[in-house]
Amino acid sequence: MARILIAEDEPSVRAFITRALEGVGHEVEAAADGSEALAALGRARAGGRPHELLLTDILMPVMDGISLALAAARDAPNMPILLMTGYSDQRERAHGLEAIISDILLKPFTLDELVERVEAALAQGPR
């Protein structure tokens, strides 16, 4: 299964996503904001175990998901990126990023929807 990095500032949502993806066999690393996630991406690449998917919330403190997605696309151009948001205005901010993101997952989502969208992004393979 895949090595996935999650960036989500809400602890309960982060824990739900982590449990759900680990439950279907993925290896998950979780970060509380975009800055922490960007550092994790760098450590993973330097250590020779890069992530195979980034799943990030759009609205987060320190560094938001849009900034994280842009930096991740620059540093790991083949890694699929899946955005998530619970706010329609935040979804509009992702307009124009189709070249670097696989999809946008709208909150609230079910466990089945989460797994389905993650699997679809992984199946698309490298951008």
Rank of each mutant, 00 (worst) to 15 (best):
S102W: 05
A31M: 04
E116Y: 13
T85R: 04
A32S: 10
E22K: 02
Y87T: 12
E29W: 13
A120W: 03
T110R: 10
A69E: 10
L83C: 02
L5F: 08
M60V: 07
L106P: 15
D57V: 09
P77K: 01
A37V: 14
L70Y: 11
D103H: 01
T85Q: 10
H95K: 13
I100K: 04
S102L: 06
L53I: 05
V28R: 01
D75A: 15
G96L: 01
P11R: 06
L97S: 00
L68K: 04
A37T: 06
D33E: 08
L111Y: 08
M79R: 10
L41I: 08
T110W: 02
H26M: 01
I101G: 03
A37C: 10
E8G: 06
L41N: 11
H51E: 12
L54Y: 12
I101W: 00
Q90G: 15
E8P: 09
I66G: 03
S88L: 15
L68N: 10
A69H: 12
L97R: 00
T85A: 04
E113S: 02
L59R: 08
I58E: 06
G86M: 01
L41R: 07
L21W: 00
R93P: 05
E52A: 14
R74M: 12
G23S: 00
A99Q: 15
E22P: 02
E119R: 14
R74Q: 07
V28Q: 00
G34Y: 00
D9T: 07
A44K: 09
I101E: 01
D64H: 08
